[in-house]
């Protein structure tokens, strides 16, 4: 399979200081790296899930792909086109749809649902024979009846708003969908419906998707591969089954274990991660995870690991990757 989307050494920086402070600070302190050398491929037709604690750069990754934040280095290519040196974003964004984290907040508050789902057609100057019919059709595909046509975003529940977001993302049958936390803010009883909807549409249209989530419970059911991010870097990437059952990076393992289950008998022993993610302007030396790593060894503090093929599949950035044996021990 070919890569529909590929990233090479992508770097995104944000200003860390403002005003006078920025002028006085040494140049390297003025900016922080939110993405620091991300390389990955998303194959045509697959779903890649990106996981990691908040602040790890997941949202920034999605925004860098469709040009909502500028790259400070590296390259993104989509469908064989390199997206650098002022690409035609208008044309690219027609084929790359994005779903934002806040289901209601990502809908323009003074537009009706009908206008919202037809917005992509208006933006791209596509004439429709019958606007109402098209809106009804798109909504029906997302499981909403025509009675929603004239509602405003604030009159929708989170789940309904999310459906409108899905309908709109698919309006122009895109090639790639970037979904930022599609289940955030939804009740568990609604999450399933939304994910089923996305799975169904993905299968029908052969969509390629990049799903950002910190809901680890849903990974198994939606993703083909998982990329784990920490401080703007990928620390492990590989097939979903392998990462869930046999995580090689200690951080991946801690993430997967930190997931309270609704089963009172399953009070299992888990590695509770020490401390929190460091700030972007205080990256630890060596392996950036070492201050929190339960299996760190002395040289981890001085030697930075790079992403290398893991023995069990995928790639991992750790000097001492975990194996099945160390896991059960």
């Amino acid at each position: 399979m070919t890569a529909l989307l590929s990233l090479r050494d992508v770097v995104v920086e944000f200003p860390a200081l403002r005003g006078l402070k920025a002028l006085l600070a040494p140049p390297e302190k003025r900016r922080v790296r939110a993405l620091d050398g991300i390389s990955l491929d998303v194959l045509a037709g697959e779903t890649l899930a990106v996981v990691g604690e908040s602040g790890s750069g997941k949202t920034t990754l999605a925004r860098a792909i469709n040009g909502l934040v500028p790259l400070a280095g590296g390259q993104v290519s989509f469908d064989g086109m390199a997206l650098d040196e002022s690409p035609d974003w208008h044309a690219v964004r027609r084929r790359v749809a994005m779903m934002f984290q806040d289901p209601v907040g990502s809908l323009s508050p003074r537009k009706t649902v009908r206008d919202l789902v037809l917005e992509p057609f208006a933006i791209h100057g596509i004439r429709l024979q019958n606007r109402r019919d098209k809106a009804v059709e798109l909504l029906a595909d997302a499981g909403l009846g025509p009675d929603f046509l004239h509602r405003y975003p604030h009159q929708l529940s989170g789940g309904q708003a999310r459906r409108v977001g899905v309908a709109r993302a698919l309006a122009l049958t895109p090639a790639l969908v970037l979904a930022d936390e599609p289940t955030a803010g939804l009740d568990v009883s609604v999450q399933g419906e939304i994910l089923n909807l996305m799975n169904r549409i993905k299968a029908e249209h052969g969509l390629t998707t990049l799903i950002i989530t910190h809901n680890l419970n849903i990974l198994r059911h939606i993703a083909d591969r998982i990329a784990v991010m920490y401080l703007g870097r990928i620390v492990e990437i590989g097939p979903v089954e392998r990462l869930l059952s046999d995580p090689a990076h200690p951080y991946t393992r801690a993430l997967m274990a930190a997931n309270p289950e609704p089963d009172p008998t399953a009070r299992r022993e888990r590695i509770v991660l020490k401390g929190e993610t460091p700030a972007l302007n205080a990256r630890p030396p060596g392996c950036e995870f070492h201050p929190r790593c339960p299996v760190a060894r002395p040289d981890c503090a001085s030697r930075a690991p790079v992403l290398e093929p893991a023995t069990t599949g995928g790639r991992v950035a750790c000097h001492y990757p975990l194996t099945k044996e160390t896991l059960s021990a």
């Binding site: 964004r93 027609r94 508050p109 917005e119 992509p120």
Partner: peptide, 16 residues
């Protein structure tokens, strides 16, 4: 606001 970002992500022009 997120809805403005969403418009940009769909390819909307500045004027729009």
């Amino acid at each position: 606001a997120e809805f403005i970002l969403a418009e940009r992500a769909m390819g909307a022009s500045f004027a729009r």
